[in-house]
Design a binder for these strands. Structure first.
Length: 691
RNA sequence: AGCGGGGUGGGGAAGCUAGGUUAUCCCGCGGGGCUCAUAACCCCGAGACCGAUGGUUCAAAUCCAUCCCCCGCUACCA
């Protein structure tokens, strides 16, 4: 066995919670980049497994199951199947997509726990918790509301009062109520829980984290913050029925906390795979050979503490030889049209809807292009359409189509010999070589956005070469040379199809098909065969090439924004919220944005077709402003001329009755007592600021 | 309020960790070319006091300090 083959990789994506169908944000923050990376490693010829599955334990699953009137096991199975099918639709090429509730996950979690127990990293502590007599369950903090002991707010949550923002303990609440049944049949019960002794493990965790100099800023920053604040013991059990049992006498009523069992399921799911393929021991080859295995984990930044601190600590505490993460690639957040994805407000796109609208590769490409690697990024329908129309269709699709069509029209579809002495051809080969080099460099640094841009540049490079060589002219003057041009481009296209495979696997298949190659080959060829300008010689391209992408029309974009919620809707809801609230405090900096000055009304005239609006010209010192004001029923134009009044000068201009109004008169009063000008006590020059 | 991320030509981003020739890319805009290709492609051009102020330095978008603004998280919704 060569040294190369003992090097193994485990790629994991954060386990999506079983509860319902996920947003695009969930895809882009872990599942998709993990898939792209695992595919990349396969393109490098590495021994790699890509592990993921649903995270099924915990209270939310139980509650959602209640709501759907299903036993929790059935509920989880249902959503496991649904999510699995969706991810297959996105061509996520898992080695195994399992479940955290499978027997293997129970087994490994219990095994890990027992080792920690033997090694003295687990202790018991008694605690008080609220218990709902109706639901017959202990209530997690979030499932209790009651009156705040500090401010008397009646709907304070178990952990914090929204009104006075005091941090609370659920047992402090006055008249606590259960949010599951809504009743107040609650009592305080003593309960004991098991804790993982993180303070004891801290030095080892710190030493390990400090060694990870190659982690991205998001990951390392969050991990160091936790360590610097000091680790506290963390409960690993809950009072639930749904979950993994604690394998100790006297603790049979307890279940492990989700945060504790979920990451163990990466191992558990690998075991599920191992059992399924009939090699029950093979999981150890990956998870218990830390010197030769690299664990690469993809997750959203909220998950970083669990993967960078808690889980490694947990594994270290076993004193066993489990693999710890080599890379934890944390992602920031994806927003939707400038705001957040929101289930309740029905804003944003769910993964199942996405697949009904467009092929998976459209999403894969755009999402990786805007992957929130170093900052939050925004999903925009216009951006999506642009990426599809310009990059995928205009650049890649066009290149593939034009070369295949041209070969069919002029050379019976046969690819010829590439003349490698031709300097322009040499330049094209060099460009592909260089592209490959950069691609590997960026992928090895887990830089997905940058890799996508390298791909896009290569697609353009193909078009440039095609344009520069103008085979449609060559074919008339020197048919042989035209054939060289087309053959070179065909080989180039083959190369970029392989490079593009991790990102747009289905498209790469189609490209291979159009080139007359076996589509499944594109998932097998390794990167060292990308730069190859010989292998297609004599081959025949497809006589009926498949169109790679469909254009997304402007009209369609507008419809999508309308259907899924766009900016307009966001504005409205924001205004609504504000309108319902009392005026809150503003900071001085916000106040200082207001530019209010004394202005003198120079002219005033009625606006045709309006009974209240007057068009005023106001001298604000530096200039004359046109302001439309609704005071026509209070004053005649003549009365207004010469009046001095405070004017809000930097108000966003707005068209009223077709006239641009560039400011606002400030007056006092209301409709009962009338409206009055605020006239300065002493005459001041026009344009004097009001502070 | 606390925490995290960010402010770079009209829009979106790269560059900032290891300061240094004309600040890079995509879209848009202006002009030109091509007609093989899903009006898709290619070339040229205009456009940036790199959030503000102060500092370090021969030299700062890049380092330090202060401030301002935006977004997200703080709800087992990633």
């Amino acid at each position: 066995m060569s040294e190369e083959s003992t090097e193994k990789y485990i790629v994991t994506s954060a386990l999506p919670y079983v509860n319902g169908i996920k947003h695009l944000g969930n895809l882009v923050g872990s599942l998709l980049p993990a898939d792209v990376y695992a595919r990349y490693l396969k393109r490098k010829g590495k021994d790699v497994i890509y592990i993921c599955g649903t995270d099924e334990h915990g209270t939310p699953a139980e509650i959602s199951a209640l709501k759907e009137n299903l036993p929790v096991e059935e509920y989880c199975k249902k959503y496991y199947e649904i999510q699995k099918r969706i991810y297959e639709g996105f061509h996520l090429d898992f080695t195994y997509f399992g479940r955290s509730s499978a027997p293997e996950s129970h087994k490994i979690t219990q095994e890990i726990f027992l080792k920690q127990w033997e090694n003295g990293f687990i202790f018991e502590k008694e605690d008080e918790q609220l218990y709902c007599l109706i639901d017959e369950r202990f209530l997690p903090d979030r499932y209790v509301v009651g009156t705040c002991p500090h401010c008397g707010y009646e709907r304070a949550r178990g952990d914090q009062c929204e009104n006075c923002s005091a941090l609370l303990n659920p047992t402090e609440l006055i008249n606590p109520r259960c949010t599951i049944c809504g009743k107040d049949q609650i009592e305080v019960r003593k309960t004991r829980h098991l804790y993982l002794d993180l303070p004891k493990l801290e030095p080892e965790v710190r030493e390990w984290v400090e060694k990870q100099t190659h982690w991205p800023a998001v990951t390392k920053g969050i991990a160091m913050k936790w360590l610097n604040e000091g680790l506290k013991p963390r409960a690993i059990t809950r009072n639930l029925k749904w979950g993994i049992k604690v394998p100790l006498k006297g603790y049979e009523d307890l279940r492990f906390y989700v945060w504790y069992d979920a990451p163990n399921s990466y191992i558990g799911i690998t075991m599920q795979w191992a059992n399924k393929i009939g090699k029950p021991e093979i999981w150890k080859k990956y998870w218990k050979d830390p010197d030769n295995t690299k664990l690469i984990q993809f997750l959203g930044s909220d998950n970083v503490p669990f993967h960078a601190i808690m889980w490694p600590a947990s594994l270290i505490a076993t004193r066993d030889n489990y693999v710890l993460a080599h890379m934890i690639k944390g992602f920031n957040w994806l927003t939707y049209e400038g705001g957040k994805f929101s289930t309740s407000m029905n804003r944003g796109v769910f993964t199942d809807q996405a697949l009904e609208l467009f092929p998976a590769d459209y999403w894969r490409y755009y999402l990786m292009l805007i992957a929130p690697e170093r900052q939050n990024t925004d999903f925009k329908w216009e951006g999506f359409a642009e990426a599809v129309n310009k990059d995928l269709l205009g650049s890649l699709g066009n290149l593939v189509n034009r070369v295949v069509s041209f070969l069919n029209k002029n050379f019976d579809g046969v690819i010829g010999k590439v003349d490698k002495n031709d300097p322009e051809v040499q330049a094209l080969i060099r460009a592909l070589k260089k592209g490959l080099e950069n691609y590997v460099k960026e992928m090895d640094s887990y830089e997905f956005q940058k890799t996508v841009i390298i791909l896009r540049d290569l697609w353009q490079e193909g078009n440039r070469f095609f344009q520069q060589r103008a085979p449609w002219k060559q074919v008339k003057e020197n048919k042989e040379k035209a054939h060289v041009t087309l053959s070179a481009v065909a080989h180039f296209v083959r190369g970029i199809a392989i490079l593009s495979e991790p990102f747009i696997p289905k498209t790469s298949e189609t490209i291979f098909k159009n080139l007359g190659l076996d589509p499944s080959e594109v998932h097998l060829i390794t990167l060292d065969h990308v730069v190859d300008f010989d292998s297609l010689e004599g081959k025949k391209v497809s006589s009926d090439p498949e169109i790679l992408f469909q254009k997304i029309e402007k009209k369609q974009v507008q419809e999508l924004i309308k259907r899924f919620g766009g900016r307009e809707e966001k504005k409205k809801t924001k205004q609504k919220k504000k309108g319902n609230q009392k005026k809150g405090t503003i900071s001085y900096s916000e106040f200082s944005k207001l530019d209010i000055r004394i202005g003198e009304i120079k002219t005033a005239e009625k606006i045709e077709g309006s009974d209240k609006l007057l068009k005023l010209t106001i001298d604000i010192g530096s200039e004359l402003r046109t302001i439309v004001s609704g005071i026509g029923h209070l004053y005649t134009p003549e009365e207004l001329i010469g009046k001095k009044t405070p004017v809000l000068v930097n108000l966003e201009p707005k068209k009223l009755k077709g006239i641009m109004s560039e400011g606002m008169l400030l007056m006092t009063g209301n409709d009962d007592i009338g409206w009055y000008f605020l006239i300065p006590e002493k005459d001041v020059p026009n344009g004097t600021k009001i502070m």
